[in-house]
């Protein structure tokens, strides 16, 4: 149980960090797309700012998304152990993707600006998938031991 909880927390943190990173770069891509120059220093500064600054809203959303998504994967994986990796990665991917789609449907607006584009939305799925991958690796070690 402790290992599962620790794996979940690690998955949330990593998915959050990658998600925030993708959001940050998506926003900067929109700015440079308008013809404005963004230096490497400003880009790196934005990553630090965004990863450290999105804990109020985005981090809880990621935590809830994975909290809902990973147990679904667990239910599938328990009866199909060979699907363990793909199951958790897919669950993480779909969880974060669904979070943004649901938010847009409820609010009528994109809560996260970078998800207005398909690539920005898919990048959020990738962040969730990375979280799912990490959960799979970390929570699975107890069996290997």
């Amino acid at each position: 149980m402790t290992r599962t909880l620790g794996s979940y927390i690690a998955a949330v943190i990593v998915a959050y960090c990658f998600g925030a990173l993708f959001i940050s770069q998506g926003n900067i891509a929109a700015v440079t797309g308008l013809g404005f120059d963004v230096t490497m220093s400003q880009r790196l500064g934005a990553i630090v700012h965004d990863v450290s600054g999105m804990t109020d809203i985005y981090l809880p959303l990621v935590a809830v998304s994975l909290l809902l998504g990973l147990p679904v994967a667990f239910a599938v994986v328990r009866k199909n152990p060979h699907l363990r990796m793909i199951g958790y990665v897919s669950a993480g991917f779909v969880a974060l993707l669904a979070m943004h789609v649901i938010m847009k449907a409820v609010l009528g607006l994109s809560g996260i600006a970078s998800t207005r584009t398909l690539w920005g939305l898919l990048a959020q799925g990738v962040a969730g998938g990375i979280g799912g991958y990490l959960f799979c690796r970390l929570s699975g070690q107890s069996k290997a031991d």
């Binding site: 940050s24 926003n27 700015v31 404005f36 934005a46 965004d50 999105m54 809203i57």
Partner: peptide
């Protein structure tokens, strides 16, 4: 707007890192 702004997104992320240009 939106390339140069003193504000940030409601999520806390930068809209843009440029405050002047």
């Amino acid at each position: 707007w939106p390339a140069v702004t003193k504000g940030v997104n409601y999520s806390g992320a930068y809209i843009s890192p440029l405050r002047t240009a």
